[in-house]
Amino acid sequence: MAAKQKVRVKINGQEREAEVEPRLLLVHFIREVLSLTGTHIGCDTSHCGACTVMLDGKTVKSCTMFAVQADGCEILTIEGLIQDGKLHPLQEGFKEEHGLQCGYCTPGMILSSLALLKRNPNPSEDEIRHGISGNLCRCTGYQNIVKAVQYAAAKMAQGGQR
């Protein structure tokens, strides 16, 4: 076993650090070391996107990165989206438009949608479908997820960016 290394991140606005094995996956670091279990694991091959988080403003599949590679980075997970007890427009949109069923893909799906809306605040349906194509959902058939993203886009356009 290789010597442990210190990893320091700013996650959901909080500074956190821990000594971890160099081989520890970022997703396990987030879930098990930092106890933020909203980020899920659905496959072994980086296909499903359940583990999607934002790292320095870009989405990554946290099962394909080592925690040590995230040292010094800023991370946003699903737990960081709510502000002052108020849901983010995307969280609201998924609820309002029935964009989730079992909820397992939802955190990753919301973060990919957030990245999309940051790049493209007014996406077409086709752009939304491509924007979330790295995230698999087994329950919804995506149709209401598209509506949820459209709901959030409209709301964010009205109410200022988040």
Binding site: R31, L36, T37, G38, T39, H40, I41, T77, I78, E79, L81, I82, L87, Q91, E92, F94, K95, E96, H98, L100, G103, Y104, T106, P107, I110
Partner: peptide, 17 residues
């Protein structure tokens, strides 16, 4: 609207893992 969604959209579901 679904009652269960409030926890799921916040990543506060409680799955086995």
């Amino acid at each position: 609207k679904r009652k269960e969604d409030l926890r799921f959209v916040q990543g506060k579901g409680n799955y086995v893992d």
